[in-house]
Design a protein around this nucleic acid. Structure first.
Lengths: 230, 230
DNA sequence: CGCCTATTTGAAAACCGTCAAAGTATGTGG
DNA sequence: CCACATACTTTGACGGTTTTCAAATAGGCG
């Protein structure tokens, strides 16, 4: 394989990624030399739930959604991942199948790193391993937070919370269907529609086809903290 | 500080722990030299949600429960951890407060490792970092699985799934109150009581005070996969 | 224009939480 | 040993919330 200096675009992407931003030029080049770029058209899978985990991925362009299938058909969206974010990392370190599928939402480009290459790299670069631990810790923290929300909170609050999270990640215009919002919150499409209808009537957001625009984030914060708190 | 060889009990515990079982004698001794044993009586806290994370812990004797408080009062149990298992690891690598509290269920002993000591150790022992990554990956996997359950599945199925998980971890006799089962699943005590009442009527388990005994694990598997599947 | 998908709306039913009360084991002090 | 307090558990009734089922509406793209 060629050396890092010959992959300038890959180095650029890695440098602005959540997991590798703190690496120096040498470390980046070294990692880039075991990376490969792949493309996926909208709707294509990056990996499939239950499949053997050979690689992890860094999104370089586009948007990837990670989802699980529940016992009967329903899809649950674990998250959307954009440029600089890592997907498939959970399965790579255990030797167990991918616990979820990853699908390109738009035409996307990703950087692929093979399991063995990555493990070998981490052994040589302990500080990078610490960074990965930090990223995983942060994912775990949010997963556990959402778990509690979903078991103790009502539809309006759950939806408000997800919308807030999305606003902070992607800005005021949220390009999601009602169905996708349902799959993120565990609500049905109909409930989401009714609920954001109310939000719209309250002047919190504007409805659109396949999108909604948040105009009053502060009020959303209040709703996400529960209907009545002193 | 003294060297590892002077901490034989600690070495023994570390050797049988989920995170450090693969270490050799030298590595174990080295780690043991920065460990300290602490004890907690039943009901005492090991760390508190929101507190500054200075340490992570390995349970050596007893049982620890990790829980979060929701916006108004309610507790949600993230998990129970027994001998060999690690708690407090999430907060240690980010510089953010503990996201949950840990409380001794029984009189317990734990091994404490200070944040700085552990980070320094990981930098010297990259293979241990990989092991930690594996543990975190596994935690993340189960958290995401439970998240999906709680958002897409009904009480009976959720309860069946938690009971199955518990059976596999602690054996057929489950020493939990109805309230604790509720806090694990996000159901009320009453709903849990009614539901396990049905399970009992079906001959799946036997009820007891502060415990229940699973007698038909297979049927529980069926229920956990959904009420009707071809 | 016509089809396909997304969205909205309505009505009924299921499910679970809440509130209230009674029942039952366990332990304690007299 | 009994009486009582305490904590855990069970049961019932009710109501609210969300799902489900069904149908209508609307937008985009060929």
């Amino acid at each position: 394989m060629s050396i890092g200096a010959e992959h300038p675009e890959i180095v650029t992407v890695l440098r602005s990624s959540e997991a590798f931003s703190s690496l120096d030029a040498v470390e980046l080049g070294e990692l880039a030399s075991v990376c490969k770029e792949i493309t996926r058209s909208a709707g294509e899978l990056v990996f499939r739930e239950g499949g053997r985990p050979h690689s992890l991925f860094i999104v370089s362009h586009g948007r990837i959604k990670v989802l699980k299938h529940s016992s009967r058909g329903k899809e649950h969206i674990i998250g959307f991942f954009g440029p600089g974010e890592m997907v498939g990392e959970v399965a790579v370190f255990e030797e167990r199948p991918y616990p979820a599928s990853a699908e390109a939402v738009e035409n996307s480009r990703l950087i692929r790193i093979l399991r063995e290459d990555f493990v070998a790299y981490l052994v040589r670069r302990p500080s990078v391993a610490l960074h990965i631990i930090r990223v995983l810790g942060s994912r775990l923290r949010t997963a556990q937070g959402r778990l509690m929300d979903s078991t103790t909170e009502r539809a309006q609050q759950r939806l408000a919370r997800i919308l807030l999270m999305l606003v902070r990640r992607v800005g005021p215009t949220l390009p999601f269907t009602r169905e996708e919002l349902g799959q993120m919150t565990g609500l049905t499409t109909e409930t989401v529609s009714r609920q954001i209808g109310e939000f719209s009537a309250m002047g919190i957001l504007n409805l659109g086809r396949r999108e909604l625009v948040i105009v009053d984030e502060d009020r959303l914060v209040l709703l996400s903290e529960g209907p009545f708190d002193s």
